[in-house]
């Protein structure tokens, strides 16, 4: 008998052994309550479920997942702990990255924590998940973060500009000008330009990164971890996926480059289609081109047309 089965026999929280409200599987409403209870940390429970009950529910779901392979229990845990992720992501929201992006990154840390949780160690999921979530967010900042020292004032203006751009693009139905940004952000055009230039520094770390520095699982697109994939990612023309260096890019990056350079869409149009901000599209395009440049040496190294017989 495997260790897995041994643990099942001794599982004190097996479904059939759960008497009373505190131990049964919550219905949707209760699940929602559990989520709210974790706002600012899972131990708080204004809806009446005690800390012990929450811990028992966590343990129950973890056992369902790890011992019985119950994917729904895993999904439920993820949903329950997303407020914790948001709470932790909020601490880093003033550092120039979109809050939603940080939540997605933190969610990866949460999923890793749930998947790697060791039932025999006797710790709470909160205890184990928190450093995993924070670590994932910090790693994101380390990998994508400011490569040079940027004055706080410029960083703050950059953050403000991100918000202003998000507001102005749908309002104007086009990309705003520098003067429009300056007026909306209560800054001078020179300050806006300087702040935008700092966003180059924000990503320029990848210029010096080794070709392997951002590959593999750590660099897989968030879309690879969360939710269903955009179908269009897979339907783009082969020429994009076959071009040199493209293996280094995740699906979203390939898709965005395809839309920009082969379909001719503007950044704003891509942003609308992919569901991210125009600034984010701009950063992804720049980062993707840098990856390509690192991978194939430089961009003036053309691939023979796909139809060419002498393609090497």
């Amino acid at each position: 008998m495997s260790g897995r089965d041994d643990r099942r026999v001794n599982d004190p929280l097996d479904l059939e052994a759960l008497p009373g409200q505190a131990r049964r599987v919550p219905d949707d409403d209760e699940e929602s309550e559990g989520s709210e209870a974790r706002q600012g940390g899972p131990s708080a429970d204004p809806k009446g479920r005690g800390k012990d009950d929450s811990e028992k529910l966590d343990q129950y779901l973890l056992r369902r997942y790890h011992l019985h392979g119950d994917r729904k229990a895993r999904e439920q845990l993820i949903t329950m702990y997303l407020p914790l992720v948001r709470s932790l992501a909020r601490r880093y929201a003033s550092r120039g990255e979109h809050f939603d992006d940080l939540v997605q990154v933190g969610a990866i840390g949460l999923i890793k924590a749930i998947d790697r949780f060791d039932l025999d160690r006797g710790v709470e999921l909160t205890t184990y998940a928190t450093p995993n979530i924070v670590g994932e967010i910090k790693r994101y900042f380390r990998d994508k973060g400011w490569s040079v020292r940027v004055p706080r004032g410029l960083q703050e203006l950059n953050i403000r500009l991100n918000k202003v751009i998000d507001e102005l693009v749908p309002k104007l139905q086009r990309s705003p000008t520098i003067n429009e940004l300056a007026e909306a952000a209560n800054a001078t055009p020179e300050e806006v330009l300087e702040a935008l230039e700092t966003s180059q520094a924000y990503n320029s770390v990848s210029l010096q990164a080794s070709p392997n520095g951002e590959s593999g699982e750590e660099d897989a697109g968030l879309i690879d971890y969360l939710g269903g994939e955009e179908e269009a990612y897979d339907t783009m023309e082969d020429r994009t996926t076959l071009a040199p260096g493209f293996a280094k890019l995740d699906k979203r990056e390939r898709y965005i480059l395809h839309l920009r350079f082969f379909e001719g869409l503007t950044q704003s149009q891509i942003a609308e289609r992919v569901g991210i901000s125009q600034m984010h599209v701009s950063r992804l395009i720049r980062r993707s081109l840098e990856k390509l440049r690192e991978e194939i040496g430089d961009l003036d190294n053309p691939l023979p047309p796909r139809s060419s017989d002498d393609a090497r």
Binding site: I165, R174, S175, P176, T177, I178, N179, L181, P189, E190, V192, L193, E194, L196, E197, Q200, A201, T266, Q267, S268, Q278, S282
Partner: peptide
Amino acid sequence: STVRMVLGGLGARLDFSLEDLDDLF
């Protein structure tokens, strides 16, 4: 960076959009 800043200033005077400038950069 210096080149981008100068071109950015000129583009701003021409009322280039943010995307125009990004393409230029």
